Computed example of a mutant assay.
Amino acid sequence: MKAILMTAIGSPDVLQVQTLPTPILEQDTQLLVRLKAAGVNPIDTKLRQRGTFYPDRMPAVLGCDGAGIVEAVGSAVQQFRVGDAVYFCNGGLGGHPGNYAEYAIVDQQFVAHKPKSISFAEAAAAPLVLITAWEALYDRGRLEAGQQVLIQAGAGGVGHVAIQLAKLAGATVCTTVSSPEKAEFVTQLGADQPILYKQVDPVDAVLHWTKGEGVDLAFDTVGGAVLSQSFAATSVYGDVVTLLAPNTNTDWKTARDRNLRVSFELMLTPMLKGLVKAQQEQAKILRQCARLIDQGQLTIHVGQTFSLDQAAAAHQCLESGSMMGKLVLLID
Rank of each mutant, 00 (worst) to 15 (best):
Q188P: 00
V276H: 14
T7Q: 15
D28E: 14
D220P: 02
A312G: 01
S307Y: 01
G94V: 02
T45V: 04
Q147V: 08
S11G: 05
I118E: 00
T45K: 04
G156S: 06
I43Y: 00
L31T: 08
K198P: 03
V236N: 10
E213I: 15
T269R: 15
V186R: 06
P194S: 07
Y237W: 12
V33D: 02
A166Q: 08
V14E: 07
C64W: 10
N249S: 14
K253I: 13
S178K: 09
A313H: 06
I331D: 00
K36A: 11
F88A: 12
L243I: 12
T221Q: 07
G95Y: 10
A124N: 10
G224F: 02
V226T: 11
H160A: 09
V129A: 13
G74Y: 08
R140N: 03
D294H: 02
T299S: 14
P270E: 03
F80I: 02
V129E: 03
A112E: 04
T305H: 08
D332K: 04
E71Q: 09
A191Y: 09
T22S: 03
T299K: 14
D139C: 01
I43T: 05
A191L: 07
C317R: 15
P21I: 09
L31W: 07
V203N: 09
D251E: 04
D251N: 11
G325V: 11
D204L: 07
S235V: 14
V111H: 10
G159E: 02
L275K: 08
P180F: 05
C317L: 04
A218V: 04
L47W: 07
P12T: 12
Q199S: 07
C64H: 02
V77P: 01
G223I: 10
A233P: 01
M324Q: 15
S178R: 14
T234P: 06
S117M: 10
G274R: 05
L244P: 00
R34I: 01
P42N: 12
R258K: 14
N259V: 11
S11P: 11
T242G: 05
V241F: 03
Q30Y: 13
F53I: 05
R261D: 08
D192G: 09
M1D: 10
